[in-house]
Design a binder for these strands. Structure first.
Lengths: 190, 190
DNA sequence: TATTACCTACCTACTAATAGGTAGATTTAA
DNA sequence: TTAAATCTACCTATTAGTAGGTAGGTAATA
């Protein structure tokens, strides 16, 4: 077996959350997508809240690993940011995962179980922290010149990325992601 | 009667959409909020899709009127942008309407009835057009200096606003909206 | 080496609650 | 007195979740 049923369920659930958020999918959708009964999904994940919680734990791990890999493999900070943006650019243009799960859930955070909500909050904190530290490193190496504090610039970048995802989706134009995020990166050059 | 039942229904529905999107509320929620039966809501709005469609027509009108008012009442383009941002700033800090209905629906646009989806798309187009024309006017009066085309800068601003709303919500920090949008406005000054 | 026990994964069949929606009677207001 | 607004009382489909059982594998034991 190359992929466990649990992993299949999580993959499908992630796709569904990305498409329509927490209230936009059901166990029946997952059931249909992978060809097992609803009850079997409950065997692996007793409740929907539990399923999404595990999903977010997995996502957090993947995100952390991804950002760590970028940080260690790419020496120059501007290249790191570019790699991060390129990642999303290709996710969006290939429509494989045209939105960040956590950004999606952030919109409906008020309605979510607290367990899930805190995962979402943490993702925003982690991502902005990574961006801030990358910006700081770039400033120290003279590769960035910031108008404000790194933390502030990080928040601006993160918001631009999420807003660009939303515009790309709303307008049905994947290209608009790069059109928005590209200039935001370029203006950091000294 | 100072407010018709239809208007009350629309107001409540808007609040609910802002909180959790299209799939995040039901007729039962509206019923409970204003104290009439579900069936009575169906009398005014036969289907949920119809209700939200009317809601978006009303929203489009309000938005258009609002932006027109800003354009005619405020002579200088930078002041117009500031007024637009201030509007959202106060919506968010007062938690009266901490998110744009259309931005909310844009996230789940793939699952929405086409009628509603096109309203959402149009809102993104209208808003970016208004921003672009405001930027163009400001450039002509020497009050803005843009790095790129006005249309591109408009897309960046719109994405920043939406992304800032999302961050404010995700982090539970209304102040972060201004921290993100403020600098984006300031860097347009010549 | 049987055999008993246990486990995982999945199933059918159900439940209670909620979803959106309808039919038709009754009230309210012009 | 007619039309609009609201009601009660439904309906059907779907939701998340449960109950109880089966098939097949693994492990302990006699």
């Amino acid at each position: 077996m190359e992929q466990t049923t649990s992993e299949k369920i999580l993959d499908v659930a992630q796709t569904l959350v990305v498409a329509g958020g927490y209230n936009g999918f059901s166990y029946a959708d997952i059931s249909e997508a992978i060809g097992i009964r609803k009850a079997s999904i409950h065997h692996h994940f007793p409740t929907k809240a539990h399923l999404v919680s595990v999903l977010l734990q997995r996502y957090a791990k993947q995100a952390e690993d991804g950002l760590n890999a970028v940080s260690t493999n790419i020496p120059n900070p501007p290249g790191r940011l570019q790699a991060y943006f390129d990642h999303w650019q290709s996710c969006i243009t290939q429509t494989s995962e045209p939105f960040c799960v956590c950004a999606m859930l952030a919109g409906e955070i008020e309605l979510l179980p607290e367990d899930i909500a805190s995962h979402v909050r943490r993702h925003f904190e982690n991502l902005s922290r990574w961006l801030a530290s990358t910006l700081t490193a770039g400033v120290e190496q003279g590769q960035f010149r910031l108008s404000g504090a790194p933390e502030e610039e990080a928040q601006i970048l993160m918001a631009s990325v999420h807003g660009a995802m939303l515009s790309a989706r709303a307008l049905g134009r994947p290209d608009i992601f790069a059109a928005i995020v590209g200039p935001q990166l370029r203006r950091l050059s000294p």
